[in-house]
Amino acid sequence: MDTRDTFQVQFKGDAQTYFGIWIVNLMLSIVTFGIYSAWAKVRTKKYFAQNTTIDGRRFDYHATGKQILIGRVIVVAALILYSVLSAIPVVGIILALGFIGVGPYLINRSLKFNARMTSFSGLRFGFDGTFWHALKVFLLYPVLCLFTLYLAWPFVARAQQRYYVKNHRYGTAQFDFESGVGPFYKALVFAAFWAVGVVIAITAVFFGPALAAGQLFGEDSIWVTSDLMTVVPVLIIVIAVLPAGFIYRAYIRNAVYAAASVQGGHEFTSTVKPLALVGIAITNALAVMLSLGLMLPWTHVRMSRYLARNTYITVNGTLDAFVGAEEEKVSALGDAFTDFEGIDVDFAL
C-alpha cells in the first residue's frame, strides 16, 4: 500500500557562524580587489546548502571558486571586446544583434551549472533546457507582451517558471509543472493593489490638506519647494514599490511550488504569507541600515529560516526508497560530466 509522508524543510544555520564566514569573505574580497569574491560565493552557497535538510538529508554545493572565476573572466572579456568593437558602426550593429541570443545562452549555462553543482543526499540535480526554448520564453514572450501593455505578463511569468521547473531533474527523475494562469494574475493584482493603495494614502496624507485649501501650487505655496518633493518619492519606493515586490514574490512562490512535482508523484507546498514576508524584508532592511551593514548575515539567515519552515515536500512512498531508486538509476547510467565555468543568473523562488 502506498504511503505519503510530508516533510518540512529545515534550515539549521545560525547568524554567528555565518557572520564569521561573511566577514572573512568581505575582507579577502577587498584585499584581492574582488578576485576572492568567486571563492566567497562558493563558501556562502555551500554553507546555506549544507545547513538545509529534509528528513535529516542535506543539500550540498560542489562548485569551486576557480570555476566561477573563469566564468566571470569570460563575461568581462566579452563585454570589453564588445565595447571596443562597437565603436565601429557596422560592427556595433552586428554585435548588438548577436548579443540578443547571449541572454538565453547565459541563462541556460547558469541553470545547468548550478543544478549540476547542487546535490541532495549525495545525488546531483540536472537541467536540460534548450537554447531555442529559452529564447522564446525569456526574449520573444516579453517583447510580444509589450503589445498588451503588459496585461498579459502573468502568461509570460507562468511560461518562464514552467521552463525553469520542467527542465530540472533530480538524478533521472524529471520535474513537472502544471498550473493555470489564475494564480499569476492574483499575484500581480494583489501587488498592484498594495502599491496603488499606498501611493493614494501617501498622497492624501502629505498633499490632501493643501489640495483641499487650493494651495498645492502657486507662488505662495510652500509645497512645491519643500523637502516633501524629495521625501515623498522615497516613501513611495520604500513603502509602496518594494513591499509590492515581496508580495508578488510570495504569491508567485506559493503558486510555483503548488504546481511543481517530481516524477513519481512527489509534490511541494509553500505557505509563505505575503505580509509576513514584507515585514521580514522591511525589518531586515532597517537592521542592515542601522548596523551599517553588520547585521547583513543575520538578515540572510533569518530569511532563509523563514522560507525553509514554510516549504514542504510530500513524498509518494518513502524518501529513502525514492533517493535509493534514483541512486541506482544514476549509477547504472553513469554520472560523468566535465568541469565547466560557472555563470550565475539567479532565479528567486
Rank of each mutant, 00 (worst) to 15 (best):
S110A: 06
F127M: 08
I107G: 03
A201Q: 01
L140E: 05
A332C: 06
A78Y: 10
D60C: 03
Q174E: 12
V75H: 04
V231G: 08
A192C: 03
F322K: 08
F177S: 06
P183D: 02
P243E: 06
L81N: 04
A204C: 03
V288M: 11
N284H: 13
Y18V: 07
F138N: 10
T299N: 02
F11Q: 11
L26G: 05
T64N: 00
L106N: 04
Y36V: 11
F11T: 06
Q263V: 00
P209C: 07
G101T: 11
M295D: 01
L286K: 10
I70P: 01
G92R: 10
K186G: 02
G71Y: 05
T283Y: 06
G126C: 01
N310I: 01
I252H: 09
V288R: 00
A321G: 03
Q161C: 07
P233T: 01
S110T: 02
G279F: 01
Y170M: 07
Y185A: 01
F206Q: 02
V189Q: 02
E219W: 03
A204Y: 06
Y18S: 02
I282Q: 04
F7K: 08
V181H: 02
L69D: 03
V143K: 00
I239F: 13
F175S: 06
D176W: 01
R4D: 08
G264L: 09
F147T: 07
F131D: 08
T44V: 15
A308S: 15
Y163T: 05
A244G: 15
Q263I: 05
A259P: 08
T318M: 08
G324L: 14
V278R: 03
R305E: 14
F127T: 02
F206G: 10
A285G: 08
V315W: 06
V234Q: 09
